[in-house]
Computed example of a mutant assay.
Amino acid sequence: MEQPGPSDRTWSLILSGTTDVVSRSRDFARQALTAWHWLPGTGEIARETAEDVLLLVSEVVANACLHGGGPRALVLDCSAERLRIEVTDGNPAPPVRVPAHGPGDRGQPGGHGLLIVERLARDWGSEPGVDGKRVWCEVPCPPGIRVPG
């Protein structure tokens, strides 16, 4: 269920019981970014930041699939200062960054999700919930976008 908030500032997507959650989440985020005028054609900084947002959404949703028992919801909250991405899941354990692979393991997949989040996000973290956790990350809003009211 997709739902922009009453002010169009907060968009929520329920993911429990759905399939293809990473693609659905990216499509949902792309719709929100378009509504907020980050996409298309809003300047190079906004487009680059929007691509970072789509990658961040993919990473936190995929991590919830792999380590959190599946994502329950995706929330995008946009203010004049920042865009906050939140994903809830049913595992109360906080995310753990996997140590870098050794020199002989460079071809090994996985373990890079939080490294990508750390690199692209201004800040990130997790908060325990009643029956799971919320993983969040934030990116600064580029200049010249429409700030949701």
Rank of each mutant, 00 (worst) to 15 (best):
M1W: 08
P4R: 01
S7A: 12
S7M: 09
S7V: 10
R9L: 06
S12I: 14
L15R: 01
G17I: 11
G17K: 05
T19R: 10
D20F: 03
V21E: 07
V21H: 00
S23C: 10
S23Y: 02
R24I: 01
R26F: 03
R26V: 15
R26G: 04
D27N: 02
R30H: 12
R30M: 09
L33A: 09
L33R: 05
A35H: 09
W36L: 11
G41T: 11
E44S: 09
A46M: 07
E48Q: 09
T49F: 01
E51I: 05
V53N: 08
L56R: 03
V57Y: 08
S58W: 00
V61S: 06
A62Y: 01
N63Y: 01
A64K: 01
H67P: 05
G69Q: 10
G70Q: 05
R72S: 14
L76Q: 08
S79N: 05
S79A: 03
A80I: 06
A80H: 12
A80G: 12
A80E: 12
L83W: 06
R84I: 15
R84M: 13
R84K: 11
V87D: 07
T88V: 13
D89N: 14
A93E: 14
P94M: 15
R97G: 03
V98Q: 05
P109M: 00
P109C: 02
H112Y: 05
L114M: 09
L115E: 11
V117I: 13
E118G: 09
R119A: 07
A121R: 05
R122I: 00
W124D: 04
G125A: 00
P128R: 15
G129W: 14
V130P: 15
K133E: 14
R134Q: 14
V135C: 12
C137I: 08
C137M: 10
E138F: 01
V139T: 07
P140F: 09
C141T: 13
P143G: 13
P143I: 10
G144N: 07
G144H: 05
R146N: 11
P148G: 07
